[in-house]
Design a protein around this nucleic acid. Structure first.
Lengths: 340, 340
DNA sequence: TGTTAGCACTCGATTCATTGGAGTGCTAAT
DNA sequence: ATTAGCACTCCAATGAATCGAGTGCTAACA
């Protein structure tokens, strides 16, 4: 068994670089000229045979050039990739301009990512490690409806209409407001247990049913906030890369991107750990229809405990350097915008 | 010039029906057997030549069968279509189950439409003919932030955080609450003019800047609500219909569906009038990338003055009967769910 | 006069063989 | 260890041949 020496590494790198650019299998002659090794194509051929035997490259068929295998890509992104600096100015400007509302901002980010990379971009809404009730307010809208407003840590505002069978007096609402805030402020959702609920009900003097409704609303509002949403953009970019298979395959891929079920799972994965960038190559994505794709994700963090993910899906031969640096840039921008 | 008599109509109808089913150009022999007219293929050929001359059908190339032209389709949906009843039970159940929140509901509706028809579904969020302020409330969140809650006619709740440079006293907030509600309740956005604003500011005794901020927030919240959103689902269904062109064309179509700019315009069109169903065939859609598609839309109305659109995009040879009846059903369901 | 049988013709789609070229693996020479 | 050279493989592109569905037209017929 051959050993992966310096020269083989260089050749492998050259093959991958070339393939990333052209998308065509690359032959020995190309490498012979492409590198500064001054080796003849024949020598390259021998080395390539070794590299293939070691599993780093693959031949689509006899008498074609080589393309990187998943193992080859993996080696590349892990050890051989060169970081590239990114021009950030226009992005920053663009983001700031649109940053009026969180949802809007995320959608803009998604579009920006897709437009910049020519791949498909995915961005999740923030998830919360802690979900503390910051503030709570009931308001009478009309005789049969009460509006409950819940502000969660991180200034997330949720509102919920509650229908009442009987009109509720103003004073009662005032009382309930104080009561609820006293008991619930600062509590995490997980801390609102039966015990607390009982105590509130005990003190609500006959308005227990309304309290129940309200607590239901709170639970619902908060848990709903827990549902991670994924924005996507640039899905049609996938049609540009013929190596993803022409009809059936791309169709399934686009379906997965539209359906979002699988990619939501994918985006949740490793969301907690603090590795900067995650790269999934081919089957590492665990999504069947993405077996010919690579996925690169990054975690953004708004404030402590509020984080989400941004990511790119593209063909395996994507421009990893660019994608990684773009993700890093955007992540930083998100941070900065939020810090203000 | 020939005249469109009974027999020609029957033949045209047969051609269209057949083409809707198969997607293949249909020849004279097929029609000869397909209909109960007992005519030879030769006779049919003569009639078909007439129909072509009149512009109802078209030959993709010499020595191919005929396919309907836009004019042919138009005649078909206007006069020859047979209405079909739709099984509604499962839809109703499905919708009710998910109907907890408006946005959610609409998304479900979109998916349901797409799944039922195998085409692409589009649903807009509601638009408002009148946008009256129903109710308004300021609340202190912490020292530098006030939360403004605005309830618009139709129980649409908007909220907006307002940052203040100096802490604002509780009493002031109370006063502002009363002041704002007194002046603004029941007003339409269009009625909140400089005159009204001046009056409020005059009475706000030195808190004019906060009032400005609040009014800005209201304006922004309401106008934001005016932004029509379009949900889409089943876009990948478009890949199933080879007649939409294989690569370039479908790609542009999918892009338009993802971008949503053009289709939002399309959906807004005729949204006010009370025609039940609108059908746009080919270039009637005015969207370039949809020139080989048809669009069928219906208007739903939640309450007086709050309405939106649901629609289907598919190939010109879509199953119009089914699409129309599905849209009608869903529209009715939406009505009923909301009435409760 | 409307209908039909028959026939020559058109034209896209499919199939098949041919060719060219890019690339390989191996061997022998340096 | 490297390289030149050569036979070999196989895909992709090209083009000729064929097939068949469908047409238009003419002439015959009821």
């Amino acid at each position: 068994m051959a050993y992966l020496d310096e020269r083989k590494l260089k050749i492998l790198q050259a093959i991958i670089r070339n393939y990333l650019e052209t998308g065509e299998p690359v032959g020995s002659r190309t490498i012979s000229k492409f590198t500064d090794l001054n080796l003849s194509s024949a020598t390259i051929r021998n080395e390539m045979a070794d590299l293939e035997e070691m599993g780093y490259i693959v031949q689509p068929h006899t008498s074609a050039g080589r393309i990187p295998s998943d193992k080859g890509y993996r080696l590349y992104v892990d050890t051989m990739m060169e970081t590239r600096e990114q021009e950030v100015d226009e992005m920053k400007a663009l983001l700031l301009e649109k940053a009026d509302k969180m949802e809007n901002l995320l959608e803009q980010v998604t579009k920006l990512l897709a437009a910049n990379t020519n791949y498909t971009a995915m961005v999740t809404t923030p998830m919360y490690r802690s979900r503390k009730v910051k503030f709570l307010q009931l308001t009478e809208v009309d005789d049969t409806q009460i509006l409950a407003i819940i502000v969660i840590e991180g200034n997330i505002v949720k509102n919920k209409m509650i229908a009442t069978s009987v009109p509720v007096e103003k004073e009662v609402i005032l009382k309930l407001n104080i009561l609820l805030n006293t008991y619930l402020q600062g509590l995490d959702l997980s801390e609102i247990n039966l015990d607390v609920i009982q105590q509130i009900k005990m003190q609500s003097e006959g308005f227990g049913s309304i309290v129940s409704d309200i607590l239901d609303a709170i639970a619902q509002a908060i848990s709903e906030e827990d549902k991670v949403q994924v924005y996507t953009s640039g899905t049609t970019n996938m049609l540009k890369y013929p190596e993803l298979g022409d009809n059936q395959n791309v169709s399934q891929l686009l379906y997965a991107l539209e359906e979002k079920k699988e990619i939501t799972e994918l985006m949740k994965k490793d969301a907690g750990d603090n590795t900067e960038i995650q790269v999934y190559i081919g089957n590492e994505t665990t999504v069947e229809s993405m077996k010919d794709c690579s996925v690169v994700t990054a975690t953004y963090e708004l404030t402590d405990g509020v984080y989400g993910k941004i990511g790119i899906v593209g063909p395996k031969r994507m421009d990893y350097e660019k994608v990684v640096s773009t993700l890093k840039t955007i992540r930083t921008q998100l941070d900065e915008i939020y810090k203000k």
